[in-house]
Design a protein around this nucleic acid. Structure first.
Length: 564
RNA sequence: UGGGGAGUCGUCCAGUGGCAGGACGGCAGACUCUGGAUCUGCUUACAGGGGUUCGAAUCCUCUCUCCCCAGCCA
């Protein structure tokens, strides 16, 4: 196979991995892991990490473990484990026959802790959490040593064993690493490595009442699994000295921790805590609300795994804090759906059109192309008759110069059908609102082309009133009004930037007949409008569509410019 | 003010001693039975000062700005 003309540019992590392979580090092996805590649903930021870890493994002929970092029984639930597995699979990644759990290593981890005690580098501390905080010092002042710091090894061992047996109440004691209370790095000031928690764990049940902390569990889990490159986000940079310290103390297999910048996306939030807040306070309907940046939300919204993976490729990997423009995500889904989505006609805001010179009892079947980007997708028949619906926005009684669509006296094309000319405008007697248009058609233009070669400025989508199905369509906008929702005014938080108009529900849309039995999850381009998919709320009696993303809309831009 | 990181077009990412480049966005045009798609062109960027060098985004130095850390969360 020929080499690519341009050598691919590696991000800094892939560069490290490549150099490690060339240097024979870890015997040329590459083994990564994706280690979510099952305390919430995965979001697009996790997708970045998944693509990175699984991507590197596959590019360098290595492996990637899916490992649940489940060391805190109070926050973790089976529901989250299941959703995480589903989301990783949906994204298109596969792991070995089993998934891994930090909780599977609890016994092993306990032995490691005992070993640390034996070496004199861990001790049981009786300080309360409040006292530990006070002893820790501050960012600028060193901490003080715990009065329990120099307990004899035997006493530590005995106490630690009794902690395990459940002899002490929650919070009464901890196991701490004996490192350096004066360290500038607060993580090194004798961090807690085990706490007492009389709580049932989603997997180990009541077997344990002491649970290891992240710093202790994570490095050893990586070590046990013979991970080569332990990739995590920037906020763990300060923890790397601790990661290395634990491993070095016991002289066990030592993976390399590498940190990269987490994803920030404009007009949304990507923090589990904040997403939970949105769910619990009812700002959204759930984790899979189509406005949520969760994988399940994106899936319900109509995003494809290909588009999400492509997005993750395009944003790159680096160490600087950044905020990726939502427009890039939208570009990625348009790009994918443009190739794949069948085109269909749907009228979101219907206005009645009567073709006065068209026979009342006639219905014609006209041929429409399913996808101009892919001729293999073929054609379909759409019914045409005397009474139609077109988009309310496609008519203007007094059109500005840039408006190409229907207006009194103007001729336009109905896609795949006929040229029509607006002859009369019917208004509501009281409100003055336009309620119906009277038009004439030119029979010679059947199929949409005029034999005399005359041109028309625009082509409109339409449905036949007698044949169309009614549908509900849900339109979504950004969840937040500000690109950086976390920047709230004094005394407010991100919730003050929630967009009150992020959802609008259209109840009486009309979609073409061919959509009658569209299955849940199927996606379409509603011509001239955007990409839509069938929501799980949809049923045989009631079609429900979600708008995934609009088409690029030049007219909308012109309107915006006109307003200024 | 302690420790750890980071500063390149509006945004994201390359470039690591030799012509600052790509993508998205934006603008303009071509084409079009989707004001879609596609194509073409344009698009006020190396945080600042000093130094080394024939030559600096890249090396040295000082400064400035931003992010993270004081959970028995991860």
């Amino acid at each position: 196979m020929p080499e690519p003309a341009v050598s691919p540019s590696y991000d800094f992590i892939r560069t490290i991995v490549k150099e490690d392979i060339e240097a024979g580090k870890y015997g040329g092996r590459v083994h990564t892991r994706f280690p979510p805590e099952p305390n919430g649903y995965l979001h697009i930021g996790h997708a970045k990490s998944i693509c990175l870890n699984f991507g590197i493994a596959s590019e360098f002929s290595g492996r990637c473990n899916l490992r649940f970092d489940d060391t805190n029984p109070i926050k973790e639930e089976v529901e989250y484990v299941e959703s995480i597995k589903k989301d990783v699979q949906w994204l298109g990644f596969a792991w070995d026959d089993t998934e891994y759990y930090a909780s599977d290593y609890f016994e092993h981890l306990y032995q490691y802790a005992a070993e640390l005690i034996n070496k004199g580098t861990a001790y049981v501390c009786d300080l309360t959490s409040q006292e530990i905080r006070e002893y820790r010092g501050t960012l600028t002042e060193p901490g003080r040593e715990s009065p329990y710091r120099n307990r004899p090894v035997d006493e530590n061992l005995e106490l630690f064993e009794r902690m395990r047996k459940g002899e002490f109440p929650d919070g009464s004691r901890t196991l701490r690493a004996k490192i350096d209370m004066k360290s500038g790095n607060i993580n090194m000031r004798d961090p807690v490595i085990y706490r007492i928690l009389h709580a049932a764990h989603h997997r180990s049940g009541d077997t344990w009442c002491i649970y290891p902390m992240y710093d202790f569990a994570h490095c050893f889990s990586d070590s046990i699994e013979k991970i080569t490159h332990s990739i995590c986000t920037l906020e763990f940079e300060d923890h790397r000295p601790l990661y290395d310290w634990f491993l070095d103390q016991l002289g066990v297999y030592h993976p390399q921790q590498i940190e990269f910048a987490r994803l920030n996306l404009s007009y949304t939030v990507l923090s589990k805590r904040k997403l939970i807040e949105l769910v619990e306070n009812g700002f959204v309907s759930g984790w899979d609300d189509p406005r949520m940046p969760t994988i399940s939300g994106l899936r319900r919204r109509g995003y494809t795994p290909e588009a999400v993976r492509n997005f993750c490729d395009r944003i790159g990997v680096a160490k600087r804090d950044s905020m990726v423009d939502m427009a890039l995500l939208e570009y990625c889904i348009r790009e994918d759906l443009n190739k794949q989505a069948p085109r269909v006609m749907a009228v979101l805001h219907p206005i009645r059109v009567v073709i006065e010179n068209y026979p009342a009892d006639l219905t014609e079947e006209l041929e429409a192309i399913n996808n101009p980007e892919d001729p293999a997708m073929g054609t379909r028949q759409v019914p045409f008759s005397r009474v139609l619906y077109i988009e309310h926005d496609d008519f203007l009684e007094k059109p500005p110069k840039q408006f190409y669509r229907l207006a009194p006296g103007r001729e336009v094309r109905l896609r795949y059908a006929y040229f029509i000319t607006c002859t009369d405008v019917i208004k509501d007697g009281k409100t003055g609102e336009v309620v119906e248009l009277r038009c004439t058609y030119d029979p010679a233009t059947r199929g949409g082309d005029s034999p005399d070669g005359r041109k028309v400025k625009s082509t409109l989508h339409w449905v036949s009133a007698a044949h169309a199905c009614e549908a509900e369509v849900r339109l979504y906008d950004h969840l937040f009004t500000k690109a950086a929702p976390n920047e709230a005014v004094e005394g407010q938080d991100f919730k003050s930037n929630i967009n009150p108009n992020s959802l609008s529900i259209l109840k009486s849309c009309r979609v073409e007949q061919s959509l009658t039995s569209a299955p849940v999850g199927s996606f379409y381009q509603f011509e001239r409008q955007g990409y839509f998919c069938v929501d799980p709320d949809s049923s045989e009696s009631k079609l429900v569509f979600n708008r995934t993303v609009t088409l690029r809309d030049t007219w909308a831009k012109i309107q915006k410019a006109l307003k200024k």
